[in-house]
Each structure stands twice: as C-alpha cells, then as structure tokens.
Design a protein around this nucleic acid. Structure first.
Lengths: 229, 229
DNA sequence: ATACAGTGTGCTGTATACAGCATTCAGTAT
DNA sequence: ATACTGAATGCTGTATACAGCACACTGTAT
C-alpha cells in the first residue's frame, strides 16, 4: 500500500493526495473483483490492515465507506463482513438499475444520442467480431453502457448508477468469460443502437430494459436460482 | 450523548447497543433538520466532538457514513463539510425519487393497493381538514408516501428511496409550515388515491409523478431559482 | 503599495493504546 | 454423557497521541 504512493518531490508531476481510506477502498474493490473475498466472509481488521500495510483506522473508514454501497455490512460487536449475495437482491438491484439507466437515456439530449448512435452500433458489431480478445470483451459491457448514457447531465443519477453497479459486479463475475452469454449481450446492444439510429427513443428504452432483463436471467441461471420472484 | 445510553443492568429491558457512529448520525440528522447547520458549512471535528461528548473517531466514522448519503462532503486536508445546496441538485434528486417511487408503486401487489386505497384517500381528506395541527402536517407527506409504497417488496429500492429523501429534506425544510403549499400537496394525494380506488395504476403513477413535479416547482420557487433546467 | 518567502497555529489524517465485548475452552456438577 | 459456569483469548469500538498539512500572518524585497 505504501509502495503505491507517489514520491514527494518529483518535479513536473501533479501530486494527487488521496486519503488512505479512498485508496484502500479501491484496493478492496479490485481484490473483490478478482474473487479474493467470499460473500458473507467476516473481516478481521487487524489481519487485513497488516496485509495492506496500514493501521486499522483508515481501513475502518474505508469499510464504512463501502457499507453504504452495499458491499460491506457491519454489526456491533461482530465488526464488518462482506455482504452476502442472494438471487433476490440481484433481482432487486437489476430492476432498479434498469429503471435508472432508462431514465438516464430518456434525459439524454436527442442530438447527442443522434450523434453517438452510429458509434454505438459499430461497437456492438465490433464486439461480435470473433477476433476480439476475451480480456477486452469483459470490460465491454460497462463501457458500452457508459457511452450510451454519456449525454445525461443528471450528476446524482449517474453517480447512483455507478454505485449500484459496483454492488452488482459481484454477481456478474459469475458469467465473465462466458463467450456465448456476452455475444447475446452484443446482439441486444445492436438492437438498442439501431433504435437510436432510427431516432426511436421509446424503442431504445424498451430494448435497454430487455437487455437488463435477459442479463438478469442469464446470471440467475448461472447462480442456479429459480426464475420466480 | 453519553446520557442517552441505556443503563446496563436494567431487568426486563432489551439492551440495544448501537455503535456510537450510528447514534451520532442520528443526532446530526436531527440537528440538521432543525436548521442548526448551514449548507457548505465546514465541520470542525474537535469542536463538534467535544460538543457531542465523544472522541473524534466515532464522529469521523459517522461523517463518512453520511457522506455517501450526500449530506456531507469531504476533501483531503480540508476535512468534512455539510453539502452545499443547489437548485440543480434538487431537480436531479427529485427526478430520481419520482422515478423510483413510481417504480415502487408499479411493483406493489394490486390487491395490496386495492386494500389501502380507501385509507389513503381518507387520510388525504383528513389532511385538508382545517383543524389539523401544523406539527402533524409537517410529517404528513413522508408518512403518506410510506404508506402508499408499503406493498413494495424490493428492499433495496425502499432503502434507496429512504436514503435519497434524507438528502432532500434539507431542501424541503424551506417550505415547512407553509400551509397553502401543503394543502396543494394533499389535493394531489387525493388524486393519486382516487386513481388507486378506481384500480387505475397508470393514472396513479402519472399523478404521483405530477405530485413530485409540482412539489419541485414549489420548492424551487421558494429557493428563488429559475424554472429552467 | 504589492508580491513573495518564511513562520506559527490550528486542524486533519493516521497510528497506537486501552477498555469492553464476543467467543471459545476448561472445569465442575448432575 | 450433557449442561452450566467461569476464565482466557482474540477482536471490536473508542480514546488519545502524533506527524503532516493548510492557511493566516509577519517580515522583507521590489
């Protein structure tokens, strides 16, 4: 952790100082994304702080920061733990994010959507190309959605979507690397983009919601969860 | 702060121990609601901790907890401050909450809505009654909306709505006590309830959104903000 | 008068210490 | 063997200490 800090005194380099708690949050999220922590796993502050090379104080502050994002839960006397995962939670989150992304799309200026629609379509096509590298594919979905919503000027909404997606990434990791699943995703992106090219916003919104709905089913299937509510 | 803790050893009383940081959060929210803190006001941790009778550590933890809820902002080297208020932020939040409440209403079981619709209508009428006490009126809006959405079983959605409303209460305090404004609110509640009594969910959703929209305009007017985006 | 450098002060961010709590283990009674 | 009680241990939540930073003020140069 300390090795990653910028060296003080370098000339010409903008020194960005971030609180340790923010840096710790990033590291924990990265490790979580790599599967180093399990759902419902208790966190031993002393051990983890030693592992990260910091004292317990900024670690606790980082964990409290992640608590509100649904990634960590805490209970007095028992400390912090990684949040459990459940199919119901995933359904709940998907419903919310689909609605919020749809809202962001609706709030986007039409001229902006008109401008980016061809790029979005081209990228959906490119993703389907068999020569695309798998490591590129894995990040494709988030970036495509980011670009789709890049016109939305409601800052709180975009912040909220980002935060909620952080929580959902724990579930999505189940399907990373499944090429067939991601190809279906690209076909759905094409559908959305085609609607935008044709200036059919309601159609695009409906296709976006369908994209989330089918994505939810794919992941629930992988989790071995029943389809019902 | 310490005087508010339960005495250890009382017989027959369930001892609920909550971390100090959670208790501090509650106190800060209450004081904020009473107008004791101003938007954009810096927080002196040493002074505030002394004022609350605790050490800086749980206060910092509480502030970090409130940061995610948009009530506090922090910057390295400058500490914490109460979030500024801006008409644009209020617009953004209102748009989000209106959408999320509408989603919650749509997710509510129809039989539940059918059952509570008459109560909702009755309460909207009761609110219009001139004999209602002003202090009762002030809490009316939140409680009415809570009951309206009491059938929604998406826990994350309800949690999110509650959180976002915490942030919005800073703005709504501007109009508390304005009887005329709140009477218009009740008329809008009646309209929503009437749609539910008539099993017209789309109509209720539209009326709910209109309720938020007009509420937004009322508050923006009070803030002296222009109507444009 | 204005601009710049240095110093002092108060505050912030983090490390460490300590008291209390939750859990586990050992000993005793039935 | 099982149940209960008390002690030990590890961990959590909070208090305190300390180093570094941000800002205001003072003195000096132009």
């Amino acid at each position: 952790m300390r090795d990653e800090q910028c060296e003080k005194g370098d000339i010409g380099m903008a020194i960005e100082r971030r609180p340790l708690r923010e840096q710790i949050k990033d590291v924990l999220l990265e490790r979580l994304g790599r599967g180093e922590f399990n759902p419902d796993q208790p966190i031993n502050e002393v051990h983890l702080a030693a592992d990260l090379g910091v004292s317990r104080t900024p670690l606790r502050e980082a964990l409290i920061g992640l608590e509100r994002e649904g990634i960590i839960i805490s209970e007095r006397g028992k400390g912090f733990r990684f949040a459990p995962m459940s199919p119901q939670e995933f359904r709940d989150l998907t419903t919310i994010v689909a609605t919020l992304e749809s809202l962001a799309l609706e709030l986007s200026p039409p001229e902006h959507l008109k401008r980016i629609a061809p790029e979005l379509l081209e990228e959906a096509h490119a993703f389907s190309a068999p020569q695309a590298e798998l490591s590129v594919i894995e990040r494709y979905d988030d970036e495509w959605h980011d670009r789709l919503l890049s016109g939305c000027r409601n800052d709180r909404l975009m912040d909220l979507i980002t935060t909620l997606k952080l929580t959902m990434h724990r579930y999505e990791r189940v399907v990373v690397g499944d090429r067939q699943v991601l190809e279906r995703s690209a076909a759905e992106h094409e559908k959305i983009a085609e609607c935008l090219v044709g200036a059919d916003l309601p159609g695009a919104v409906a296709a976006l919601k369908a994209n989330w709905e089918s994505g939810m089913h794919r992941i629930l299937e992988k989790l071995g969860a029943p389809e019902g509510a």
